[in-house]
Amino acid sequence: MSPARIQWVAFSTIVTKEIRRFMRIWQQTLLPPAITMTLYFVIFGQLIGSRIGEMDGVGYMAFIVPGLIMMSVITNAYANVSSSFFSNKFQRSVEEMMVAPIRPITILAGFVAGGVARGVGVGIIVTLLSLYFTHLQIHSLLVVITVILLSAILFSLGGFINAVYATKFDDISIIPTFVITPLTYLGGVFYSIGLLPEFWQAVSRFNPILYMVNTFRYGILGISDVNVWFSLGMLVFFIVLLGAFSLWLLRQGKGLRH
């Protein structure tokens, strides 16, 4: 059996296992974002949005939908990898992989693909729900797909690093609660940063989620507060950076090997 075939089958196995895991506990993984986002659509989009009127030349509901889809994708991609990999560590089932002839890059790619699968899956569910509330046009399908995939990959890598360092279950909720959620809310999901004073506009430009939300919004509506190419370039840069760091952690056996 060739080494390449072993790696491919091992990768497929990890991805299948990851998908099976989040499908098995769909009440914890797929249902909550569907309910939360529906509430966002009803409360912010319909009830409050109807009083706000337009934002950047489009209806408020249409404005927030891309941000909410992106928010669902990145939080679910992150949560999938952080909880699954930590759970593997906690139950020591990660040793099943450590004793097998699997290369670190295969393990990482498998978990990231699992995170992307859940992120994109939830993104599709939220998109379908949003169609009940608003009409979605696609300005650039290529940008939509690219930015969704890159963002899901980046946050899956973030979730992986979080899980490697986590020593207890509390440790995997700290980053989402205190970092990702605030950055998402301040990342232009609900407003255009053009509404902010200049100083806070400048501060907002250090928020990476602003670039993801706006690039996705560009793909859907054709409007953005940021340069789309810069945004995509930044995503690729951070994926390479976090990917290399994750591989280094795996090779070192950080938190996995004595």
Binding site: R5, V9, R20, Q91, R92, E96, M97, A100, P101
Partner: peptide, 24 residues
Amino acid sequence: EFNFNQFEKVIDIVITQAGYFGMT
């Protein structure tokens, strides 16, 4: 020590391990 996922089915644990060794 037991080091398998406690929530996985018996058959899935064995088949998954085979996958890690390149067996479909």
